[in-house]
Design a protein around this nucleic acid. Structure first.
Lengths: 212, 212
DNA sequence: TCATTTGATGAAGGATTCTTCAGGTTTGGA
DNA sequence: TCCAAACCTGAAGAATCCTTCATCAAATGA
């Protein structure tokens, strides 16, 4: 996967005046809404523009094509999530393993729930062109972050290996996806969050024990 | 989601002669191939027919529309996977918890790996119309199956609750998806399979312990 | 053999969608 | 105030795609 495979998605023009900033914001938001109400298949640039209250031409002033629009929204969301995950991991350094995992998992769940609608809408986009490459990047970055955190755990001899961390992260993401797509009640989210912590804690503990 | 929302996807005509059976088979296979080489967005009925070596008209003789074609392929795949999972669960009844989980997880991984290409191709379809409803059905059926198996575990007092099982299953599926999409080597698959067993075993053990 | 059923063909209608561009409006500074 | 830059508009070109149907070919069985 060439690194420059993503350049075709770069924005065409950056907003300068205040009104255009509002416009771009509206277009992003409209994209989410259309994605949720019509699905990827029936998302058209005209529909997005209409929902945003602007004309199609305006949309094309900021995004060179439809895919770049979807890509930008996806990138923005994933960026938000991983930043919060990284912050949590930094704060959890040098603590016991179980605490580390708890803080990381809770940060992830909270970040996803913060804009649950966006999360759900973008699962449909992530499979498209550009999505897989982006996700691969994010996964790698997450792995590195968690790996670095685990190195500093105060109560284990050797941390779990890369594969174990990859599996934990993808398991966590998968469970979260399933949860989000079910449209859960706040009570369910609370319980599921706790279960997710337990899942990751017990696995990491077991994986670390096997590596003594 | 109304139950009859899926009737529009039903096949139009069932093959009677031998040649038409071959044709339908070829169309199914071609769908997978086009999905892998072009993606959902650029999958057209004409392209599928061409790849299958038949004309578009033939395709429409067996599938009322494009979505029904995708739906049929997805349904067939998921059906295969869950049947193997159910068989494994039945065979594992009355055994100790850890063994149960191992057999179930291994059956799942093996079923997915059996036609890894199909699995990967269909992740792109699963988000479309009909997919979510179907997946919900499958998830529920899986949950019931695993739940019944766990009831018979010989070495635990009370089995994990529904939410825990749901989370385990979606975590397992999520990790498997991530693995498949990475195009792993056989060695990686072997290791990951073992890690997945450990993940589910340690979580189920912990969840059962909390319920005493 | 031959009539009937089953299967296959692919050009073309109808509809949708992406994207552009020539021309208009608004903003901010000189 | 006034002009240049920024911004917005939306009709229309170009391309693609889904689906049908009139027509032909193959198979079945009586």
């Amino acid at each position: 996967m060439p690194a420059d495979a993503l350049v075709a998605f770069e924005p065409r023009k950056t907003p300068i005046q205040a009104r255009s900033t509002v416009t771009v914001e509206a277009i992003s938001e409209a994209t989410i809404q259309v994605l949720l109400s019509h699905g990827t298949e029936r998302l058209t640039t005209t529909r997005v523009a209409q929902r945003a209250g602007v004309s199609v031409g305006t949309l094309y002033q900021y995004y060179p094509n439809k895919q770049s629009l979807l890509f930008a929204v996806l990138e923005n969301h994933l960026s938000n999530v991983i930043v919060r995950l990284e912050t949590a991991c930094e704060n959890a350094c040098h603590k016991p393993l179980a605490e580390m995992i708890r803080e990381m998992v809770e940060a992830f769940v909270d970040a996803k729930m913060d804009r649950a609608d966006i999360s759900v809408a973008l699962y449909r986009v992530a499979a498209d062109v550009g999505g897989p490459a982006l996700i691969k990047q994010i996964q790698h970055r997450s792995r590195k972050t968690v790996e670095a955190m685990l190195e500093t755990a105060s109560d284990i001899k050797s941390p779990p290996d890369k594969l174990a961390i990859d599996i934990m992260l993808s398991a966590m993401a998968g469970a979260m996806r399933s949860l989000l797509e079910a449209g859960p009640s706040p009570a369910t989210v609370r319980k599921a969050r706790e279960q997710l912590v337990l899942l990751c804690q017990s696995y990491m503990t077991a994986a670390a024990a096997k590596r003594v």
